[in-house]
Amino acid sequence: MAKGFPTDTGSVLTGCYPTSTGGVTLNRATRNRNRNRNRATVQLADIHPTAQYELSYAQWQRFTGFDRQWKTLTITTVCDYASIHAAAQALIPLERQLMSADAARQRDDILLEDALEISGYLRPLGIQADGSYPATERLFYRVLKVTEVVGLFYKARFNVPRPRLFNPALRPFLPDPWHGSFPSNHALQSMSIALLFSQLLPEVAPVSALFRSARRIAKNREYAGIHTELDTQAGFELAEKFLPFLSKILEDDLIAANAEWRAAQ
């Protein structure tokens, strides 16, 4: 490896475009002859770990093609002022529980789950995000991406403030996100993964553990003080209603994941 071409992925971008002062010599004998090869090693995944999981153009087309249908789903979970106010009051005991000494692991989980991260869904299936099940990883990331957009649309529609505005005594463990509270995107995303995968491969993996994990992840947002139980319920409800569209949008990924698990059996 030549000088000026760092190997760590964190600085690959700067390494790709060496400047005249970046250690590049004009001496032919000592010039780096592997320069082009080194450039070619820069992958999309090096720039951002989840960039390779972006939806394909065809998937975006299908997604936008269903616009009219998925934007008009009916959420029956009640979100009037009295209900939200009562639900926000119910968060205080959860907050206390989270701050107790024996909830350290739960706090770590909440911090981990705050980002776009799928280990909480892979672990119940007995696999890890190490590339051994690439189609499954890609499917999960794409579910998260699609459902995030859907969730944000419904959040904007209902425009419900975060629980702290209904209960000023709350001290959320996480900062309030910029968007609305209802429905919970974490609930929508995690239940979408569980519903989709459990339908696809009900007998090859402990899918009930996946549901358990999905519900825990959604509940953790209540512990963190940024969602109420109503948000969670609405997220689950939206996941169920969006499922037919989701399965069509990601059909090719589902087929790949199906083949991956069947081959591993």
Partner: peptide, 19 residues
């Protein structure tokens, strides 16, 4: 009973698992 509490299976709902 997958996404509801009874009622007939919606035609739009995919069946993904073979069991």
């Amino acid at each position: 009973f997958v996404t509801g509490l009874g009622g007939h299976w919606p035609a739009s709902m995919p069946v993904l698992g073979p069991h």
